[in-house]
Design a protein around this nucleic acid. Sequence first.
DNA 1: TATTTTAGCGTACAAGTGTACGCTGAGATT
DNA 2: AATCTCAGCGTACACTTGTACGCTAAAATA
Lengths: 208, 208
Amino acid sequence: MSGVRAQQKQKTRQALIVAAFNQLSAEHSFSNLSLREVAREAGIAPTSFYRHFKDMNELGLTMVDEAGLTLRQLMRQARRRIASGGSVINTSVLTFMEFIDTSSNQFRLLLRERSGTSKAFRAAVAREIQHFILELAHYLEAETPCDANHAYMQAEAMVTLVFNAGADALDQDVQQREELTERLIWQLRYIAKGANHYGTHQVNSKPS
Amino acid sequence: MSGVRAQQKQKTRQALIVAAFNQLSAEHSFSNLSLREVAREAGIAPTSFYRHFKDMNELGLTMVDEAGLTLRQLMRQARRRIASGGSVINTSVLTFMEFIDTSSNQFRLLLRERSGTSKAFRAAVAREIQHFILELAHYLEAETPCDANHAYMQAEAMVTLVFNAGADALDQDVQQREELTERLIWQLRYIAKGANHYGTHQVNSKPS
DNA sequence: TATTTTAGCGTACAAGTGTACGCTGAGATT
DNA sequence: AATCTCAGCGTACACTTGTACGCTAAAATA
């Protein structure tokens, strides 16, 4: 049971995933990929694809998981930087922008399938984003004078803005990205300010 | 020059556009459409398609324009409601949600092509959204104590949140939509509050 | 060692795609 | 009335796609 067999299988399985990611780009989305092209790039026969995934759909869901994993790992790293004395907003934003830069295809997948044609895909992406929101909400509830409900809404708004800024950044050059990032940081400050205002007291009263 | 000829041409051209919109759905995106299927639904031969558009791409851009037009018309209507004494945030949000409900396929197109595979598409959608942002920014600058720069950032953040909430709403039932709308309204208040705080005075000082 | 399992291959096929080409007949133009 | 224009059609072709089926050789198991 040395597992030479299973080991090789994992290897080509991974080759398929890598091949699929490589074929994603600004001009090529997941739904444009064909089983045959992916198999070709992975160096196996089209029909061998089925030894690993029953479907292109199944491949896609695996890719979403993988992208989510990458993102979560990066953000864990961000939390370490924050713990050792970085500004929360700045560090998080910069880390996210780093993700977009170094793993743009993974981000593109999440971004596109969020509003894609497969309900399963949309749900999978929504789950990944939800992770983020909950984590941030938990942090905000603990570290700022905000009740749970407002902490959640605040987190949701922030994650939405960050994610969207990431999407815009994909098409931009360095100069534009810097301006975008600066605007984003201001916008996050707005939200923090507003949430702390409304979330701290008189939660149920209408604002003026 | 009665134009019977040209009139008929416009008619089938419109039939193509309608056919294409009809084939959009939660499970079917623009890039899934085939020229042949669109032509079939419009009731013409595949090759006749070329009498109207050089490309599926050209059809798509026309559709984006049309969707943008619908949206702008709806928002003009919203402005009238506001002028006759409605709350700004509430009225705008409700109007937008109405757009998503009654013209979901048009919204889906904008939503998806915003991060789609064609740069021209992305630019076209970005332009439509930019209209919105500028219009709102102008309003905010005039009606609230906010300098131009902060008014723009505020408007951008608000439009982003509204647009994204619309995207989420597409998959939701009435109950969930109500909750979503309520959260959205709070989030917009956060932004308004924060922007007025930072944008009114001491613009260049760091927040506490 | 003999047997079973299985990753990967090659062949084959039906279905669908975009589009080149030439024709027709009904409006438009002269 | 004679001519031109051109929206729409049908045929045809070269491709690409997913996948069913059966084979092989090497690893795993007995």
